[in-house]
């Protein structure tokens, strides 16, 4: 790769370059190959896997995780981390039950929930960019504060019901197509296009890849980073409303575990915690892998505990595969 004529070693270099290309190819497409293989194998091992009802159930479970993962990806792309998403989800669900419980309240619920998500993201983003707090701590702190505020608001035990609208959104299907998919698809498309096809997306990649360079390129690093946290908060709020509709009984634990699961989905999808790498379709595939792993554990009759065990193994494995030498 040097421009100098290299008398010896050129051959070696050639071979290594080749293996580097293969690695890059595997990193780019491996997740999709794995996903397809997984589906095929699952279909063979457990034929019930491919039943329309099972698939539709899987998608219903996938949507909230995918939504949170999309936001998490934006943050990780910009070299951050958002641990507050689960807390935002639970808060959104609690908001969902705090109004009259009928469909008149749908709009205010959405507005309030999304505003809470956005405000959380704003605080996270400000702490990270203006105070240089590490993202881990900033979002950890806002997670705790939000949890406290929610407990204070509900006095520990939320009462009331989600409006039928959200219950339908969380559980119903239209010709076997889950309704929540109609929320995920446009949002995923928008996020995907912004990230992969716009100038803004390119700037996020460069901010994550080299924040100092991005500053010297005159990019509005702080504004974009804050924007990523705000988007993550908003998406988590929407996911929380859908999950609240799915869960029927809303308590304070709605969404618990999603902060880590969304990070896992992003990592499986090729995102590096050091920023600047990963794709949105990859992360969606990563979320799908997580949901499928949980599902197949049940279908083949393994104890449910193996869901988490496998999840743990998958994240380490995935990170090991993507690691750049």
């Amino acid at each position: 790769m040097s421009e100098q004529a290299l008398p010896a070693g050129v051959k070696t270099a050639g071979i290594r370059r080749h293996s580097g290309e293969l690695r890059a190819l595997a990193a780019r497409w491996g997740i999709y190959v794995f996903l397809v293989l997984f589906i095929v194998v699952s279909g063979i091992v457990a034929p019930s896997f491919l039943h329309a009802r099972n698939l539709s159930n899987l998608v219903i479970q996938l949507v909230p995780l995918a939504l949170v993962a999309l936001g998490q990806c934006l943050v990780i792309m910009a070299r951050g981390l958002d641990l507050s998403v689960a807390s935002v989800m639970a808060t959104a669900a609690v908001v969902g039950t705090s109004f009259s419980g009928d469909n008149h309240a749908v709009l205010p619920i959405i507005v309030v929930a999304v505003l809470i998500g956005a405000a959380t993201g704003l605080v996270n983003g400000l702490l990270v960019t203006k105070r240089q707090v590490s993202p881990f701590l900033a979002t950890l702190a806002s997670m705790i504060v939000l949890q406290g505020l929610r407990f204070a608001w509900t006095h520990g035990a939320p009462t009331g019901a989600m409006p039928p609208f959200f219950r339908a959104l969380g559980t119903q299907s239209w010709h076997q197509v889950p309704l929540s998919l109609f929320v995920l698809v446009p949002i995923a498309a928008v996020v995907g296009i912004v990230v992969h096809r716009t100038i803004l997306g390119r700037k996020i990649y460069i901010i994550g890849g080299n924040p100092v360079a991005a500053g010297l390129l005159g990019y509005p690093v702080a504004v974009i980073t804050i924007g990523a946290y705000v988007a993550s908060g908003c998406l988590a709020a929407i996911a929380g409303l859908i999950l609240g509709g799915y869960a029927e009984i809303v308590d304070n634990s709605v969404g618990s575990g999603f902060e880590l699961d969304s990070i896992v989905a992003a990592v499986i999808g090729g995102f590096a915690l050091s920023g600047g790498r990963g794709t949105i379709p990859g992360a969606l595939a990563g979320a799908a892998v997580l949901v499928l792993v949980s599902n197949i554990v049940l279908l083949v009759g393994l104890p449910v505990q193996f869901q988490i065990i496998l999840k743990g193994l998958v994240i380490v494995l995935a990170a090991a595969c993507y690691r750049t030498r």
Partner: peptide
């Protein structure tokens, strides 16, 4: 994180 998930399962 991975280790934590495995241990929780166990």
């Amino acid at each position: 994180l991975g280790m934590g998930a495995v241990l929780q399962g166990v």
